[in-house]
Nucleic acid binder design. Sequence first.
DNA 1: TCAAAAGTGTTGACCCTACACCCATGG
DNA 2: CCATGGGTGTAGGGTCAACACTTTTGA
Lengths: 229, 229
Amino acid sequence: MTIINEYKDHDRMLIAVDCIIFGFDGENLKALLIKRDFEPGLGNWSLMGGFIKNEESVDAGAARVLQELTGLTDIYMEQLYCFGEVNRDPGGRVISISYFALIKINGSLQLMKEHNPKWFNIQRLPAMVFDHKKMIELAKERIRIRAASRPVGFELLPEKFTLPQLQKLYEAIYDATFDKRNFSRKILSLNILKKLTIKEKTSSKKGAFFYMFDHNKYKKLEHQGVKFI
Amino acid sequence: MTIINEYKDHDRMLIAVDCIIFGFDGENLKALLIKRDFEPGLGNWSLMGGFIKNEESVDAGAARVLQELTGLTDIYMEQLYCFGEVNRDPGGRVISISYFALIKINGSLQLMKEHNPKWFNIQRLPAMVFDHKKMIELAKERIRIRAASRPVGFELLPEKFTLPQLQKLYEAIYDATFDKRNFSRKILSLNILKKLTIKEKTSSKKGAFFYMFDHNKYKKLEHQGVKFI
DNA sequence: TCAAAAGTGTTGACCCTACACCCATGG
DNA sequence: CCATGGGTGTAGGGTCAACACTTTTGA
C-alpha cells in the first residue's frame, strides 16, 4: 500500500483486539479468560487478545484471535468499544478494540490449552490485567441490550433447547428471575420457535419439549422490531 | 514510554478520529462537514478528523479535533464505532475511531473557516470520502437510541427553549411527527423541566413559555431509567 | 377580526404483571 | 404414591395512541 505524504508525519501505534467470550453452562453466564504466561501481566488473568496486522481488518483480527483460543469460526461477534487511554497498557501505547463473542459450551468445544483458558462465572470474576474488567462490564451491559431485542440468546444454547433452559439463560443474562408463565407466553407469541415432538428428560421426570430457533420466521419479523424481554 | 520486547514485532498503524458533529437549526438536524483541501479526497466532503498522537488518549484526540473546527470545549461527545477495514482510506492503513458530538448552533459559534465547514441537513447529505457516510448513518441510529432514554436533546437546544422547539427537535431526530398533547404530557410528566415565566414571541403571536432543563432533578431520576420517547 | 401557533383532557386498546393449580413420570 | 419440574389462563392496572377545541395576540 502506498502511503501518501500527508500521512507520513503522524504517530503509529499498536492496535490490539480483546475478546470477551461468553458461554452458558445451563445455570450461569460465563466469560472465558486466559492466564497470561507472557509480559506484561504474566501470571494474571486476562481476556484473550492479539495485535492487528497490516493486511487484516480489525474485524478479521478479532475473529482470528477468537479462533486461536477456541478453534471456532462463524461465531456471533460484535465490536464493543475502543479503549484508547495513553497508559492503559504498561507495555507500551496500545489501542485496544474490544469485541464480544457468544459461543456454545458443549462437548465438541476444544480450547487451546497453551493459553491456559478458564471459564469464570460473570458474577465472580478474578482480578484482571489493564482495563479488562471494564471491558467485561461493558460487554455485560451490551449483551443485555442485545438480548432484549435480537435473538442472540440462541447463540449460547444448543441447537435444540427447552423453554426452561431458555428462561434460565435470560435470567442469567439479566441477573433476575422471571415468571415462567409470562416468559413462555411472551417468547412463544413471537412465533419464532419451532416446537419439536421430542422431549428433554434428564432434568425432570415429565420432560420438557425441545424447541429450535426458526431463522426464517425471525427474518420476516426483524424489520418491525421484536421484543424478547 | 518503554516498549517491552513482546510488543516489538507487531505492526503499527495510524489512528484517526472522525467526528460527526450534530446541530439543530430549529427545523432540521444538521451535520457539519468540511470540504477537504488536502489529499486524499481533495475537493470532496468529509467529516472533520485528525490523527491521534502518542501522548494523547483517543477521547482527548476527538475533543481536540472538535475544538480545531468549532473552538468549543466541554461538549457532549460519545465514541461511536471503530472502522478498521484494510483499504478504507486510500492514503494508507488508517484505523478510524468515530465520535459524535452535539453542539448548539447559535450566534456565538465561530467555525474555523480554513477547514471550509458547511452544515448539511442530515436528510440530504452530499457524497463523502471513504466510509464517512456509513459513520453518519450509524450516528443517526445512535442519537435516536440516546435521545429516547437520556437528556441529550438539550445539548442541541439553547439553554432556554420552548416545548414546540423541543418537539421539533425530537421530530427531526426521529424523522417523525408527534402529537403535541401526548408529547408535552410525556415530557412534562418526567418533571425535569423548569418552566420560566417569560415567553418566546418571535414564532407566534400568543408566545410559548420558555423552559430549562433541570440537571439536578434529572440526576435524581437517572438511575431508575427515564423514557423521553 | 382574522390568521397562526400555543395550550389543554378524555377514552379505548393494548400490554404487562401478578398470581396458583394440575400434569406427567421416574423412582 | 409421591416428589419434582413442566405446563397453562385470567383479571386489574398502567401506559400509549388517537383525537378537537379554545386561547392569545399581532397585523
